[in-house]
């Protein structure tokens, strides 16, 4: 997953972001659109965005790097977010996260060697009354124990 797809061209990048140029405060919607399209924000987008929005490249880079959401490299085929916030901790989220990372043999933000899944921390999914919670590709799962986590991992092909 980390290598194959060719880098998007300037033309393709312009095609994704130009329709958003008339918004008030268009940069975040543009970055989301890029990430929705390619799964990450390609480096080649920085000068294009700087040109369209009349910003310095450093400013664009500064915005991308400020936000946890924006990835600068492709992730695995699936993204597993494990909540680390207090409500989930009160129901054993720390142990769940540790055992999951150990099982996969990766650290936070790591991707399994087969490219199946990237594991990221998240601070609150709003599932605080059914903790601990995780999110798999945008789908939330509550009251996650080791057995449920094993099923999730099997589903994403670990």
């Amino acid at each position: 997953m980390h290598s194959s797809a060719p880098a998007p061209s300037e033309e393709e990048i312009r095609g994704v972001v130009t329709p958003l140029a008339s918004l008030e405060g268009p940069l975040l919607p543009m970055l989301h659109a890029l990430q929705d399209t390619w799964g990450f924000v390609p480096q080649a987008a920085v000068p294009v965005l700087a040109d369209i929005l009349n910003l310095g490249r450093a400013e664009v880079h500064g915005v991308i790097s400020f936000y946890h959401d924006f990835r600068r490299n492709p992730a695995g085929r699936h993204i597993l977010k494990i909540c680390r916030a207090e409500a989930c901790q009160s129901m054993g989220a720390n142990a769940l996260a540790e055992s999951t990372l150990q099982k996969l043999g990766i650290a936070w933000h790591g991707t399994t060697p087969n490219g199946a899944v990237t594991v990221e921390p998240v601070y609150c999914l709003g599932m605080c009354a059914c903790a601990p919670a995780v999110m798999v590709d945008g789908k939330v799962v509550g009251r996650v124990d080791d057995a449920r986590m094993d099923r999730i991992l099997a589903e994403v092909g670990v």
Binding site: A85, E86, A87, C88, Y123, C124, G126, M127, C128, A129
Partner: peptide
């Protein structure tokens, strides 16, 4: 931007 752990009223 309901980021506080323990809160979900906005989402709900």
């Amino acid at each position: 931007d309901e980021g506080d752990s323990g809160t979900f009223a906005d989402r709900m």
